[in-house]
Simulated assay, not measured.
Amino acid sequence: MTADDQTTEQPVESLRELAQQAAVLKLLAERVAAAQKDVRKRTQLALDSAAERDGVERITAKLPTGEAVATIGLRKGETGPVVTDEEALARWVRATWPDEQWTETRIVRTIKPWKLAELLGEMEAAGAPKVTDKTTGEVHEAPGVVIKPTRARTHGITWRKGGKDATAEAWRSGALAHRLAAITASEEDTA
């Protein structure tokens, strides 16, 4: 055995410790992911209610000591045009601009992707499924398109300077033990 072989081999005890650490971290990651999904859903519902009821759109996250570590705030959703009947829209584009090559016929008529993006952009800017003919100035109602939410409202966490370190220290010191106990509890404990 060469010196290089000795430096790359893991002692058996070290491998056991790594296996234990891998198993513990895997379980913790699974439990944290499930808890995060649950608290994210409940936080969104609470923020939506507070925004509707009181106009509150952000809240400060504080440690048990009262130290502010982060701000949780609503992020606006987006609304825009959504094609609900592509065939009807393609027929309308072809009938409205028959001399243009913006559509193509396959089994059904479709709109070329670049033109569809352009039309939807105009509808989004108008806030309605309407398109203005640039040649005639005529405003057309586009069939097969509705304006509706395209991305749900959500929330995000903005950490304050030093907030992550303070939270990690509160976790290490046990100050957050009551908050984190449910994450590590067995399934029988929570039933």
Rank of each mutant, 00 (worst) to 15 (best):
T60D: 05
A142N: 02
D5N: 07
Q6L: 12
A175R: 01
Q20H: 03
R160P: 02
G137D: 03
I147H: 03
K26C: 02
A3D: 13
W102Y: 07
R106Y: 13
I72Q: 06
R58G: 00
R42Q: 15
V108D: 15
A166G: 09
A170M: 11
A19D: 10
E122K: 14
E104Y: 08
W97C: 00
T150L: 09
S186R: 08
K41A: 02
A68S: 12
D189V: 02
Q6W: 09
R91S: 06
V24T: 05
R91C: 04
G77H: 03
T71Q: 15
L15W: 02
S173W: 13
K62S: 12
W97M: 00
A166T: 07
R75G: 15
G55C: 09
V131E: 00
E17I: 15
T158L: 04
E52A: 14
E9C: 11
D48C: 05
I107E: 06
T103V: 03
E9K: 08
V139W: 03
Q20V: 12
G162M: 07
K164N: 12
K164Y: 04
V32T: 13
Q21G: 13
A128V: 04
D38R: 12
W97D: 00
E124Y: 02
K41T: 12
A126Y: 05
T65Y: 14
K76F: 06
V56D: 01
G73W: 01
A61P: 03
V56K: 01
L180M: 11
L45F: 15
G121R: 10
T158S: 07
E187N: 13
A50K: 11
P113G: 10
R75D: 14
V39I: 14
A29C: 05
P149D: 08
I72G: 05
G66P: 14
L120P: 04
A142R: 00
L28P: 06
S49F: 12
R160T: 01
A88L: 10
L45D: 14
T84S: 09
L74S: 12
P98W: 11
R91F: 04
E118S: 09
P143H: 00
E124M: 14
A19Q: 11
L18C: 08
R53P: 08
T190A: 08
D165Q: 11
A46M: 07
T150G: 10
L74W: 06
P129M: 02
A128L: 11
P149N: 14
K161G: 12
V145I: 04
E57A: 11
V12M: 10
A170C: 15
A19H: 10
L18N: 03
H155F: 10
I107Q: 09
I59N: 02
L27S: 08
A33S: 10
L63V: 06
A117F: 14
Q36E: 14
T190D: 05
R109F: 05
T2L: 07
K148P: 03
W114C: 15
R75A: 06
D54V: 07
G162N: 12
L116N: 04
A117P: 06
E57K: 15
E52C: 13
V93G: 00
A19Y: 14
T135W: 11
